[in-house]
Design a protein around this nucleic acid. Structure first.
Lengths: 250, 250
DNA sequence: CGCCTTGTTGAAAACACTCAACTAGAGTGG
DNA sequence: CCACTCTAGTTGAGTGTTTTCAACAAGGCG
């Protein structure tokens, strides 16, 4: 890789992590440098490639620069349950820093560029930067909060559940600047959404028809457009508190 | 509270936290003292009392000394989804140290004695004890792993799901010495189990009948007894990896 | 004893699943 | 350019699981 490309990637990381962690609490200059210095090389994954597999103990954690990824587990019958969706700026795999071996796998949902953070460098951060450590910890706690909301949402009917997923993605994408004109690119098939919602692909299609019939959103050609945000939120029982997007001192 | 009672509680905390955190990695003497010093007063909660409510920002985290607790969220219709069950030795609410305000509530499932750890003292730990900080962080990551497994288990049929819940509780209770003769006290009604599994109370009863018919376990008078552990595990598709009960250097 | 909670059962309705067929579109190779 | 193929999306019909509602039994406790 050329020095220039590396420099571009470092700039991307700086911008994305800045948006992400600064969304929780202000980073000092020293902290910003510390996290940048912790970054290792970057890698490109094709859609459907596993970034990490269950049972492995990677010695690095990954941050998404662009593209979509998901964490998932599978039943014995081979049914896949996606437990979280990840978008640019997400520290997908910070868990593997402390939680070994992996209890789940991570897959690229689209082609996906990621930055690797070697665990030994993250450890240095925990030794020298307590405030930054708390922000990284917080980052994993927000993931847990998403899991809890997803558990609750399993109680909704398919249509409401689908709407809720879209609401969550809409706000998270907005936080990293990936929304324009109330629309976002959604490079995901209905079958994959089925694995997120825990229902069959056929039923995703029917749930989608309900949401379309209510004219809450459109989803065509890999583009989702929100038509009526307030109505969509109400239909989805969506309360964004669990995303923890407001800044509070930590 | 008398000095003697306080001394007893400190001893309980030492023993429970010792079992818990030492299960992840060995604590030094200084670390053991640090966590003991972080402990504040204790409180007793009646069954069905909320320890913390959604929207609040408590300035302490709680460790269960005895009794059962659960974290839960509710839908607009009032359906309650329990996202995690907590038993003695669990740091129920370590999340609230960094994640404010609470995205969920915590309820005592039985009468419940808890130790409070003021956040400002936990913060001191993060400033001075990086290794202990990583263990506390890890503790919250294991909770997230439980959430993920619960999400996956939502795909199982009610009977298998119920069996899985019992398997998880069996191993976790065993880790804190609350199993004897393959049996444990389960001070929980079928209605509460329904809120854990995300199904109706009536269906819990039918799921229980299936498990009983297979003679995998008995559940009478608040006592659950495992009859055929291996068969129960197989029926539940239970793989204990996600509990992270083996010790690894962190 | 009566009351309340908890557990249990039956029957009908709601919801989601499977299977199968079919459409539309993108991409490929002749 | 047209067939061919593959994937993704859509629809219908029949099946299975879970829910709801209602009733009733069993036990604890005032």
């Amino acid at each position: 890789m050329s020095g220039e490309a590396l420099e571009n990637e470092r700039r991307d990381v700086r911008q994305l992590l800045g948006k992400k962690l600064n969304g929780y609490d202000t980073l000092s200059g020293a902290e910003t440098s510390a996290i940048e210095d912790a970054m290792g090389s970057c890698r490109l994954f094709d859609a459907n490639a596993d970034l990490v597999r269950v049972g492995e103990s990677p010695d690095f954690s990954t941050l998404i620069l662009n593209g979509w990824a998901a964490r998932y587990k599978s039943t014995e019958e081979g049914a896949r349950q996606i437990t979280a969706v990840h978008i640019p700026g997400d520290f997908v795999d910070l868990h593997s820093f402390l939680l070994r071996p992996m209890d789940h796998s991570v897959v690229a949902l689209s082609s996906c560029r990621v930055a690797m953070f070697p665990h030994h460098r993250l450890r240095v951060i925990t030794e020298r930067h307590p405030h930054l450590t708390r922000l990284l910890w917080l980052n994993t706690l927000v993931d847990a909060a998403l899991h809890r909301e997803w558990l609750l949402m399993m109680r909704l009917r398919a249509g409401n559940h689908l709407a809720h997923l879209i609401c969550e993605l809409y706000l998270r994408l907005d936080a990293v600047g990936l929304i324009s004109n109330r629309a976002f690119e959604f490079p995901i098939t209905q079958a994959v959404v089925a694995d997120m919602l825990g229902i069959s692909p056929v039923h995703v299609n029917r749930a989608l028809q309900e949401v379309r019939a209510r004219e809450l959103l459109t989803w065509q050609n890999k583009i989702v457009t929100i038509l009526k945000w307030e109505e969509l939120k109400a239909f989805a029982q969506f309360d964004p508190t669990y995303l923890f997007q407001e800044k509070l001192p930590r």
